[in-house]
Each structure stands twice: as C-alpha cells, then as structure tokens.
C-alpha cells in the first residue's frame, strides 16, 4: 500500500464566467489521510464533485491508480466512478435514504455485488441458494459495520429517525459498504460536538488501519484535520496555496494570510 493513489493534475472547473478551480494539482498517497482545507468558497466541494463525477471538469486529469489499472475519473460518469474505480463519498448535507431502514441503507450500498449474485434479478426471483448466500454475506457485512459504529440496535429503524451524529456515521458506513479504495468525506465533523468528533477521529483512523482505505477529507474542524491527517492541501480561490504535512501547513504564511486576512504591512513575497 504505497505510492500515489490519486493524482489530480491541472484541474480547472469553470461555471460560466466563474472559475471555481484554477489549475489545481495535488496527489494523495495510498494508505494516507489527505485533507483539503481552505476558507469558505475556496472550491473544496467542487474538487470533490469533480473527483466523484458529479461535475465534468473543464480541463485537467484525475488519475486513480488501483491495483495495476489506472482510471481517469475526469472522463467517467458518477456511478461508474463508484462501481468500477471504487471511489466512495459522503455529502456535506447528509444524503441517506430516510424512509428506508438503517440496514437497508447498508444493503443498497452493496447493490452491484448483489445484482450480480441475483443474476440480474432473474435468479434471485427464483430464490437460488447462491443468491441467498450472497444476501446473507451482505447482511453480515452490514452488521459488522453497525457494530463498529454502535448502531446494531437501530438496524431496523428508518434512517431518517436517527439523530444527526448517528446519521453522519451511518453515511460513512454506507460508503464503506461499497468496498472503496478511496473514501472522500465532505465535512464529516460538521455539526458534531467535541465528544462525537473525537469518536469520529478514532473511527477514521481505524478505517485506515484495519480496512486499508485511503481517505480524502474536506474539513473545517482543525482538531480533526490536524489530529489525523498525514498530508494537507490548502485551497484559496480555487488555487492551491500550500501543500504538506500538518506542521508545515500550520506554519505556512500563505495559509495564515488566507485564513486571517492580509495583515496591514505587506509581507515580502
């Protein structure tokens, strides 16, 4: 598990006249937790949307190297990125299936695998044993995740009835049920209290360690970012202004300027 997993090169995204991302390049190492930070409106979520196929970038290349294959995510449609390149994501404003149960949410995430096992539904309709076995496995996997996020006893409740923090965790678990190599988390700690965000830190570190999933996250909560990231990319106005380890980024004058504004005396460039 080493080397570059995700390589973003010269990514540019324009909406009409507005350039949301301007010639951005960065890479994420396999087995690392990479964070993208930056002030509001810096283009972080747009980067995510480009990586996960919700936007088609105006220019640039997004390469994902998995096993020995390389996928150009900029040229793939959203669902293919999840099913073929195995990049999963969560959303800033949680997107669960609120009227389905917690367990069903996790089963739907294993759709493609189950679809094959059900022989594109035909074998499944006749209840072939191979399908039933696949479904049992899917439930076992879901149960495993529910145990890890502490929601086993809520498995049969509607996802919409969970409280906010539990919904965040469920969304992460659901993304992981797709067996990703890279998980993109869009502000996973937003709206969590201190205890919950510490729990989230532990969960994310555990995901990297035991499941071998690399993480890419957007976050405002500096406790999360500085506490767990191996590598940080700082964006401002769609451009990369810094790139490095948490300590290096923390000390970078450009970052301080972006967050705190221009000091009165112009610093030497």
């Amino acid at each position: 598990m080493n080397g570059v997993l995700l390589d973003v090169a010269n990514l540019t995204m324009r909406f009409g006249g507005l350039t949301a991302i301007d010639d951005l390049s960065f890479s994420a190492q396999a087995g690392h937790i990479t964070a993208i930070i930056g002030p509001n409106g810096a283009g972080k979520t747009t980067v995510f949307n480009c990586i996960t196929g919700f936007y088609k970038p105006t220019l640039g290349r997004i390469a994902l190297a998995r096993d020995s294959a390389t996928f150009d995510l900029a040229q793939m449609s959203g669902h293919k990125i999840a099913s073929a390149a195995h990049v999963a994501r969560t959303f800033q404003n949680i997107r669960l299936f609120p009227r389905m149960t917690v367990l069903e949410n996790l089963i739907v995430a294993q759709h493609n695998k189950l679809m094959c096992a059900s022989g594109y539904t035909i074998a499944g309709l006749f209840g072939l044993p191979s399908y039933r076995k696949a479904e049992r496995n899917a439930v076992a996997k879901a149960r495993g995740w529910l145990e890890r996020i502490g929601l086993v006893d809520r498995a049969d409740d509607e996802a919409g009835t969970l409280h906010y923090g539990a919904q965040r965790k469920l969304e992460i678990a659901r993304a992981l049920c797709t067996d990703p190599v890279l998980l993109c988390l869009d502000e996973p700690a937003a709206g969590l209290n201190a205890r919950e965000s510490a729990e989230l830190n532990r969960l994310l570190l555990d995901i990297r360690a035991t499941d071998g999933v690399s993480l890419l996250l957007i976050e405002h909560d500096m406790n999360v970012v500085m506490g767990i990231s191996d590598h940080i990319v700082v964006l401002d106005y769609g451009k990369r202004i810094a790139n490095g380890t948490p300590d290096a980024v923390r000390a970078d004058p450009a970052v301080i300027r972006a967050y705190l504004g221009e000091p009165d005396a112009v610093e030497s460039a």
Partner: peptide, 10 residues
C-alpha cells in the same frame, strides 16, 4: 429517496 446518493454508491 435520493438519486444523487445512489449515483455515489455506484
């Protein structure tokens, strides 16, 4: 329930 979430799940 949510088409965008479905896309993200492949």
């Amino acid at each position: 329930e949510d088409e965008i979430a479905c896309k993200a799940l492949g």
